[in-house]
Structures are given as C-alpha cells and as structure tokens.
Write a protein that binds this DNA or RNA. Sequence first.
DNA 1: GTCGCTGTTGGTAGCGCTGTCAACGCTCCT
DNA 2: AGGAGCGTTGACAGCGCTACCAACAGCGAC
Lengths: 366, 366
Amino acid sequence: MGGQRTKSGKIRLAEVAELAGVSPITASRFFRNPEALSIAKRTRVESAAKELGYVPNLAARALASQRTEVIGVLIPSLTNNVFSDVLRGIYDASEGNRYSIQLSNTRYSILQEEKLLRLFLAQKPAGLIVTGIDQTAESRAMLEAADCPIVQIMEIGPDPVDMMIGFSHYDAARAAVAHLFEQGHRKVGFVGARMDPRVQRRLDGYVAAMKDAALFEQRLVVTTATPTSVTLGGALFTDLLAREPGLDAVFCANDDLALGVLFECRRREIAIPDQVAIVGFNDLEFMASAVPTLTSVRTNRYEMGKTAATMLIEAIEGRRPERPVLDLGFKVIERQSSSSRHSESTPAVSRAGAANKMVALPTGHD
Amino acid sequence: MGGQRTKSGKIRLAEVAELAGVSPITASRFFRNPEALSIAKRTRVESAAKELGYVPNLAARALASQRTEVIGVLIPSLTNNVFSDVLRGIYDASEGNRYSIQLSNTRYSILQEEKLLRLFLAQKPAGLIVTGIDQTAESRAMLEAADCPIVQIMEIGPDPVDMMIGFSHYDAARAAVAHLFEQGHRKVGFVGARMDPRVQRRLDGYVAAMKDAALFEQRLVVTTATPTSVTLGGALFTDLLAREPGLDAVFCANDDLALGVLFECRRREIAIPDQVAIVGFNDLEFMASAVPTLTSVRTNRYEMGKTAATMLIEAIEGRRPERPVLDLGFKVIERQSSSSRHSESTPAVSRAGAANKMVALPTGHD
DNA sequence: GTCGCTGTTGGTAGCGCTGTCAACGCTCCT
DNA sequence: AGGAGCGTTGACAGCGCTACCAACAGCGAC
C-alpha cells in the first residue's frame, strides 16, 4: 500500500504522513515538537512511523534546517585515562537524545586544535566541547564568533568563552603539597611529564606552595615533554634522586608517574613512606590497591564529562544554566604512601574474599 | 564581486563556480574527481575556492549523493586501554582524508550493539567497524544486508561478514600457558573478569592447554562478570589461593588483573616467580617496569585499528584488499614474573638516567 | 566529408526535510 | 452575533549539492 518509496527502499516522512493521514509537515512536527500536535494526530503519526520503521534522514534535516545535531568534542588524547573517563561521561550524557558526538584528537597541539576547530565550525555544530583554556588567539576568536554554545572542560580560568567546567589544577597541587607538609615532609620533589598546560599549572601550584614555605629549590623539579608512562616515572625519579639524595617526598603530576616511582623505590629498596613519601594525581583505580596504597588527588572526570555534555545540550535547547562556570573541585585522598601513621589504617592483607560480590569503584571502572 | 551568499554568510559552490567562470557542476567535480577537469579549469576552481575560503556543505552533499562519508565504529568500552589504543589507530588512519569517524559505545552489550547498528545503518555510513564476531542474529543479518564495507576487529573467526582483522585469543592463551609449562609450572590458575567473548576464548584456550597436559581442574578457574580492575585482580587471586593453596602460577586474562595479583602477592609476601609465577595479557606499558617485571602477551592494538580503518577506506573507494582476513598475531613477552632463570636478565635497579632522552614505548604510549 | 570516438562541460531535476506564513476551527469574551 | 485569540494544520518554496543525461569540441579513420 501507499506511496512509492525512495530508490534505496527507505521510508520517507511523506510515506509516514500518508499512512497517518496527515500532511508531511505535520508528521515532521511530530518528531520535533510533539506537543504541538493534537493527541489524535500524535498517536496516528507515532504508530505509522513505528509500523513503517521510519528513520529520519539527518542529512536532509540538517540541510533544510540549516543546523546539525552534532556536538563537536576536541580532546588532546585518546589514550590518556583521564580523557577516557571524561569521554565516557560525554557519551553517556549524549545517549537517548538527538545529539551525536563528533570526536577529534588534537594530540596536545593547539595548532592542530585550531585546524580542527575551523573544520568543525564550518559544519555548524549544535555545540562544542573543548579542552582547557589555552587556545590560540585565532581559535579563541573563532570560538567567540561561533553561534553555538561552548563548554570548556578540564580546568577553570578567569575568562570563559561561554561555559566552563573543571577545577583548579593549581589549587589541587597546592593542596597535595600542603598535605605532604602536614605529614612532616620538607624536601618535596616534583616529577612531571608531557607538561601540557594543566600539568604546568600543577607545577606552578607546587612551586608556589614550596616558595611560601621557603623550601623551593629548582633542582627538586624534574620534568620532560615526553608523553607520560610508568616507566618514565621511574626514570624521572632516578634523575631526581641523583640531584637531591636527601629527598623525602615526591609529588607526581599524575598517577602513572607515581606508580613508576613506587616501582623504582622497590628496586632501590627505598621504604615508602618512611624514606620517601609519594603523592600522585587523578586517583586512578590502581592507586587504592598498590602496595603500599598510594595517596592521590581525586578529580571528578566522569562527572565533568557528563555535566559538560548535559549543560551544553540544555544550552543548545535554550535553557542556559544559571551558573555558566562550574568548579568540580578535587580531594586529596590520603593513603599509606604519604601517611606518617602508616600501616594502621589499612591492614597489610587485602579485604579479601567474595570477588563476585564486588562492585566497580566509582572512579576509573570498566 | 559576484553572487549573493547564503544568509549565514557561507560561501556556496555556486559562488566558487561564478568566480572561476565555470558551471557549478564543474566546480563540484573539482572536489570529487579533479582529474576529470582540464588543467586550466582545475586551477581556476582551485584558486577561486581558496580565495573565498569555500567549505563544502556535507549535509547537502550527503543528501544529494545518497551517501555519507562517515565511518561508524562500534566498540564495547571507552575506558578500557585496549580499545583506546585501537581507537587511536582508527582516528590516525582517518586523518587527512574525507572520512569522519562516528563512534559509539556498546558497553559490552550485543543488544545495545544491535540497536546502535540499526541507528548507524539508517544513515547509510560509508563503512563500518565492529568489534568481535559475536553479534546477535539480527545484527548479523543487518551487517550482511548492509551495502557498505565492514571490518570486524579484535579477533579472527571462521565466518567473516566482510573483512576481518585481529588475532586468535584462544591461541594466545594457549601460548601463554605453554610458556608457563616450559618454565616448569603445573598448577596454573586462571583469573578473568568481565568475561566478554574474547576473555571467554582466552579461558577456552587456557582450559584446552591444561586439559592437553592433563592438569585441568575446575577450581583453578576464577572468573567474574564484574568489570576488570587492579583491585579486582587482588580479590580474584585471593579467592584462587583459598581454593588451591598449592598454586604455582596464574594466567591473568588482562594486565590490570595481573598488576592486582602482583600487589596481592606483595601483601601476602608471596615470592614472584619462585612461589607463584604471573602472566598477563595485552602487554600494557607498565608491565615492563613493574617489580618484578611482568610477563604478558603482546598484541598489536594500535596497528589493528589503523589497518582496519585503512582497509575499510580502501574498500570504500573500490580497492578491496586481496586478503580480507588479517591475523595480526601476538607474542609472549617473557619477563621476570614467569622466568625460572630470574634476576639474571634484568638488573635490580632500573636502567637509570637521562629521562629527557627517553622515548615512548611503542605500545600504550601517550 | 562524414562518422564515431574520447574528453570535457553544462542543464535539469531532484535528494528529504523544514522555515515561513497563511488559514482553519474552536472557545471565550463583549 | 461578532470578533479576538489560541491551538492546530497545511501549502509552498527552498536548503546546497550531485546524478543523470545531453551536448559539444577535437581528433583520427574511413
């Protein structure tokens, strides 16, 4: 019955409309704003669409409406755990609604970011999620000129393009160092890799905390532009020890490096935390089960991604958030690797048993 | 000069054509098949496009041509390291050409996969990358009916929908167990989490190897449907030890579990490999710098993603590969955790020094 | 000179959907 | 009764691009 289909056998809106006994435009409205239809027509169109298995043609919709339902996401890395948690949040938030995610990898290059931004903007995305606050001047100008909502994620800064969600890496680093001071440590080293803007701000926070305590020395800082890895953590720590054998603590710019430091201590038979305390950053899942357990700064990465996408979608649909800048904070999670009252809090043998009853941890699961 | 633009100020093909002094269709051809134009027109259109900063409208192109330049990718997890390596390969391969990646997360559910597949197919993707070979019957039927190239990744099996690239998890597991046998181990346990089809096949390989050696016992196997984590590795190992205190080796279905086992051994003061040997799976970066270093089965994940996308694009453009099924193999990387001649091969203190000269490892960098 | 061929170019007619605006019927008010 | 106002519906005209087919020039062969 009714209406010839498109060549490829696909069902068009016109077929649905015909079956439902309404005009195509009414059927179209059903998918965009069902409330505008009378109950009778609404149900008629709905069942017609279901019966025919109608799926809207997004290209036609985008062409006719002069906008897309694509959310562009620009992140610096696909493999860094930190971003995969954020991404998972973004994808989860985009599920069940009309928006689809278009992901691109800037590889920590703001020039690449600029190029991708130009590409994205040319297709008129519904919204944009970009990482950080250190865009090129050109990128910044494009973002300001873009006529779609934009969320900057991962950190917060003074001058949002539009919306912003993250936390202060500077403050988080200060808090980590303050924790080490509280535990009685003084010669606190810093190891950092990749040195992207956020790691740089962690370094700045470390430097400020050390200077405030009149403890800063340049030789306590070891950094490299090399991408981070566990192995690199061991190597950087080795350098640090060579520069300052009297070291009594290390603040690692991320948890991979911290794990590398832990293993290097093991190789050198350096006692943790008695000889050297360790603090990491991000609180990846393994930190809680390392031996000794590793102190870290917990950040809300999944929530950050999820909230960013949710805020963005709300803004796309005209409901702008009352507070466009959201600080998700952080928390220093104290564990054995930096605790002066160690081995009391956690028993030496793990809380064993019934693996089948275990559930995933909130951070870094899956 | 010439031609009114679209409302939003965008330049259309018509403007480019006018400036170049050719018809719109000729300008259109320039972007799709430049060789069809005479040299003179080709350069005229090229410079006109550059001068106006023309960017094609993909929605219009998709609508008119009845196809998209989108490659759909279905993977089970966004956070599992294994898939992020594959993804990086896919994104890298898609860079610099006309295709864009549309990613979706099935969350290890083949029902979710089926749903997403239906969604993807409705938009007529240029090609599809799907994970594994265990689709629902319905999904399988949709894939076979799809009129676009398809690559199945992560494993190889007898009955490809179209193209296929991966390796045999069964053989890899057998090789891992064989390695443990060679090192003189007999009571080899298995710990596995999530138990997706690929982990299941690793278990199958383990079981077969054990049965061949007449060493199989059900109580040596501990698995859970819970998502994998380092902490879970410790818990599963604890279970395993309770069932079989005489255990002398563990084959872990992935490296996170192996790291958890390592830490649990440390807590229990179990010597590795003297009392218990450990073998992991995937050879993530940290395996090489753990203490002791951990044996693992190396797989070519980045290459898998990159090759899959490259093959797919070739096929989309009509150049089908001569061999549609590619076995990328695997390699057991023997390290201290399973070596009977241990502590000779690798010194107790790491190959220290100049961190700045270090480069990332080929696997799992960034 | 005519034919057929190849290489190059252009005209026409949509692709499937939605923006805009007009029109309809109904209720409620004066 | 007449009109304002609302909720609901439909006609029309594209969105920017490409598939299809026709046309044309230039060439060599007969």
